[in-house]
């Protein structure tokens, strides 16, 4: 088992996440249907597709929020299979942050305590936790909101807290499932800038799920287009834009062009 893992790493030193014939079924729905591709260290990787294409399911397999039905995923030096028990995944999960469309902050905790919680789980001592939380709140521009409860924040501020919380344990990977879908265009841009800053400053690999091609265009180095549980197109963002192959990709791009042109 471990030799397989070594192979995976020696093939390409920069591979951080590798999907190998990954599938996930819910009853008779093939949500993810035999997907294989890799995400490199330091990339911002976009996953786009229509509703129900399987984007969330694919990404939730990375931190084992969903159990694999078949295939394998290599994340850093951890191998996930259908036999992996979620109770063995604490280490893996500490190394993966996640942000959500609905932010999912703890309403009963202040901003400070939200960001502190993953550090508590990781067993970091109190003084260090404090330093780290303040550092993160400063990074996301919410230092003055430390003692405020989430219900008092705007959507954009909530997502900033979400980002700070996801980054608390300094994970190598950040998963963003439609992190800007609930935000207005201006706030969306702020959050995208912040994600870019996270990527540049901390070298965090970011997996971005989105419905909109503009998000891909703005921040993603690479993009995978999903349809019906399969990756139908994958490549560098600029190449995919220049020369889209699949009908779904073409539709996404032409929608973007229409929006940009301002004419129906």
């Amino acid at each position: 088992m471990s030799s397989q893992l070594d192979n995976a790493r020696s093939e390409n030193h920069e591979v951080l996440i590798r999907f190998d014939d990954v599938s996930k079924v819910f009853g008779d729905v093939n949500a993810v249907d035999g997907i294989s591709f890799s995400i490199l260290q330091g990339e911002i990787f976009g996953i786009i597709g229509r509703s129900g294409a399987g984007k969330s399911t694919l990404v939730r397999l990375i931190n084992a929020l969903e159990k694999l039905s078949g295939g394998e995923i290599y994340v850093d030096d951890v191998k996930i299979t259908s036999k992996t028990r979620s109770s063995d995944l604490k280490q893996l999960r500490t190394n993966i942050g996640m942000i959500f469309q609905s932010f999912n902050l703890f309403g009963s905790r202040t901003v400070f305590k939200n960001v502190e919680y993953p550090l508590k789980l990781a067993g970091v001592d109190k003084a260090q936790r404090r330093t780290r939380v303040l550092e993160l709140l400063d990074f996301v521009g919410l230092a003055e909101k430390a003692d405020v409860y989430p219900s008092k924040l705007s959507g954009g501020q909530k997502q900033r807290v979400g980002i700070a919380r996801a980054l608390a344990t300094n994970p190598k990977i950040l998963l963003a499932d439609e992190a800007t879908s609930a935000l207005d265009p201006e706030t969306t841009l702020d959050i995208l800038k912040l994600l870019k800053k996270v990527n540049v400053e901390f070298k965090t690999t970011i997996v971005v799920i989105t419905h909109t091609m503009s998000v891909v265009k703005l921040i993603c180095d690479k993009v995978a287009v999903m349809n019906d549980g399969k990756v139908v197109e994958i490549g560098e963002t600029s190449k995919v834009f220049e020369n889209p192959q699949h009908e779904v990709t073409k539709n996404f791009i032409s929608t973007l062009r229409t929006l940009e042109s301002g004419k129906l």
Partner: peptide
């Protein structure tokens, strides 16, 4: 789910 994803 957020807590689960943190490893709780």
């Amino acid at each position: 789910e957020a807590a689960t994803a943190m490893g709780a």
